[in-house]
Design a protein around this nucleic acid. Sequence first.
DNA 1: AACGAGATCAACCGCATTCTG
DNA 2: TCAGAATGCGGTTGATCTCGT
Length: 285
Amino acid sequence: MRKPEGAIATSTHQVKKMKKGLWSPEEDSKLMQYMISNGQGCWSDVAKNAGLQRCGKSCRLRWINYLRPDLKRGAFSPQEEDLIIRFHSILGNRWSQIAARLPGRTDNEIKNFWNSTIKKRLKKMSDTSNLINNSSASPNNTSDSSSNNSSSSLELKDIIGSFMSLQEQGFVNPSLTHIPTNNTQFQAPHMINHPCNDDFTPYTDGFYGVNAGLQGELYFPPLECEEGDWYNYKADINNHLEDMNGNGNGNGNVPASMRMEEYWDLDQLINTEVPSFYFNFKQNL
DNA sequence: AACGAGATCAACCGCATTCTG
DNA sequence: TCAGAATGCGGTTGATCTCGT
């Protein structure tokens, strides 16, 4: 059995209390030197061997978020911002997974950036967008997403703003929404019989649409899985829909979100044009 | 200059998962 | 196999900074 963390037992059976709070430059220096000369190992050993009165957890956090030599410092570039928004639209608050795709950035950094900057900015944009839409509801100036090419002309801010709005209202998990990029996807879809009696509509861009009742139609990205995984994939979608619609059995077995990474190539999804990730919010509003 | 509000960010907390003796 | 420690993650907190009045 491993020794418990949280206190250091000394040779005189004293138990030293772990230090908390901000790290001093001396502590940083100790940890840095230890990590450079010994590399990463058991974090509780790192704390002990580096002569730090910190728990391993604290050392790990300090190293990962601040001392690591490969960390990129400074403000996020517009490109990084764009990537974060795209990744977040797919992954939700899976900060570590987002960070893994942004070299030199930490999950904590991205989380803070999202919560402090992007979230507020997008909300502001959403509010502004709603204001404009409400004030321009004249016959000649309607913004009907089903008319002409409005879906492709929507701007990122509108899309994200609507995402945020609905997400905050708990209507929808934006990672699971999509709208076909043009009307050709609706041509002659054949229906696939779902084991749980839901109908899946395959579109020519590889996405699948499924009727989500009050949620409107939801669109799921192309599969990465083998043919034999179809049943699990569809069952997962069905579970998710039941979860969203409150028809689940409530025993906690239904995942809050689908196991996307098991089926979908996220990096490929990210490279998809932004409009591919918005949903037909018109049906929900 | 002083103050307050809002923004930022480092670090903690609690929980879930993984590891190990 | 299992109990408990270690690890990793996301949410939250609180100290500090910045900016407007």
